[in-house]
Amino acid sequence: MDDPRTLEHLLVTRMVRFNATVQGVVTGLVLGLIVFVATIWLVIKSGPVVGPHLALLGQYFIGYRVTALGSVIGFVWGFVVGFALGFFLTTTYNWLTDPRHRTARRP
């Protein structure tokens, strides 16, 4: 455990850092896909009123509707918002953990 080369040592002493861009892209893709699939699913199911609740996203995503075209627009919005969220989260995390980790290492 005292050997800094061992993984056990790594597990208890080191804090993980994330790459903000990578996390942003991943979160963006995930959120974009969720919006896309949720939308297209309702479009395929169809019915007298298609996706009245999901359509509320249009309040925030300009141009978004529960239609085939809307699913693509929703993907783009989802990606943008997801990227912003992921990037912000990661940057904040790294920003907060860096000084904490440095402090913890002081004798």
Partner: peptide
């Protein structure tokens, strides 16, 4: 690669980040 994936997540830092993101998101919405 191993060093990238196996260290701990800093709970306080992540709480700070998700708290900031959550608060900001709800405020903006």
């Amino acid at each position: 690669t191993l060093q990238e994936y196996f260290p701990r997540i800093d709970g306080v830092a992540l709480a700070g980040a998700t708290g900031a993101a959550g608060g900001l998101a709800l405020f903006l919405a």
